[in-house]
Design a protein around this nucleic acid. Structure first.
Length: 271
DNA sequence: ACTGGCTCCTGAGGGC
DNA sequence: TGCCCTCAGGAGCCAG
């Protein structure tokens, strides 16, 4: 499942090979993604130079001269650079050919991902404009979490995973950050002190930046732009470790559903 | 304004 | 061994 570190890993892998190149051809093989891929996409982008690849939360922003493309990887999506003579795989839905000979393939078995065209300021697009702060940016701190959570009764883990609270913190890293901050995932968001939220913000930064350094977490099939896996899985403290011993207290890691999502935690360490 | 539930989809994995 | 069934999971959307 691509989360922020996997998306950032993808961005860093693609940018050096594609920025500055012109899109020579775009083939849409399957337009039924989260939203139907706009039929005009190839016509609008053809011949345009790719100026940059940015990221906002889990959205990648491909900025061309006169338009931008927002790509979300959903939970099974990936973008890979290949030689154009590499055989197509099932679920290779979009093929982007660039004039430097590179081809980028959007692959997504479950089709929860999206490829959206925007002609205006990408950051003002409805999908991006109301996102919370970037967790690895300069404006993210415990004060923000504390202020936003006053009066809220939902579980802190669901609060964290809401992209309007903070952008890009998904299930794996929400579990890990709450463990680092010793906060129980089911605790009501509005009943956590400023001091504990500061510790949580630190935990989020810590776990996300470590995962970016490791090239992301490969659980099942995540690969970067070159088709390589990430190595953060071996640093996970709780995610996927139900019934195994806590690294801190040696108690047993528990699994339970919170907000319809698998939540892993140490009942002894987290309150 | 919040909150929880539904929805899209496929492949992995468990049960028999 | 192989088939069938269940279900996870991001996040937009909607109803209460």
């Amino acid at each position: 499942m691509p989360e922020l570190p996997e998306v950032e890993t993808t961005r860093q892998g693609l940018a050096p090979h594609l920025c500055g190149a012109r899109l020579s051809k775009l083939l849409i093989r399957e337009r039924r993604l989260r939203w139907p891929v706009e039929a005009q996409l190839p016509r609008v982008l053809r011949g345009q130079r790719l100026d940059s690849i940015g990221r906002r939360g889990k959205y990648l922003i491909f900025e061309f001269q006169d338009a931008a493309v927002l790509i979300h990887l959903g939970m099974s999506g990936s973008l890979r650079l290949v030689e154009s003579n590499v055989p197509l795989r099932r679920h290779d839905h979009l093929l982007f050919d660039f004039d430097n000979g590179r081809q980028m393939r959007f692959h997504d078995p479950r089709r929860f991902g999206s490829v959206v065209l925007t002609r205006g300021q990408p950051l003002e697009h409805p999908l991006l404009v109301s996102l919370g702060p970037e967790p690895l940016g300069n404006h993210f701190a415990g004060e923000h979490l504390y202020t936003r959570s006053r009066g809220r009764t939902l579980a802190v883990k669901a609060f964290l995973m809401d992209a309007h609270t903070v952008a890009g913190v998904g299930n794996i890293y929400a579990n890990e950050a709450l463990y680092l901050a010793a906060i129980h995932p089911a605790r009501a968001a509005g009943r956590i002190s400023l001091q504990r939220y500061q510790r949580l913000a630190d935990g989020i930064r810590q776990v996300l930046s470590a995962a970016v350094r490791q090239g992301g977490t490969t659980l099942r099939d995540f690969v970067n732009g070159a088709g390589e896996p990430g190595y953060f899985a071996q640093h996970l403290n709780v995610y996927g470790r139900a019934t195994q011993p806590c690294h801190h207290c040696h108690g047993t890691i528990k699994l339970r559903n919170i907000g319809q999502r698998a939540s892993y935690y140490c009942p002894q360490c987290q309150h």
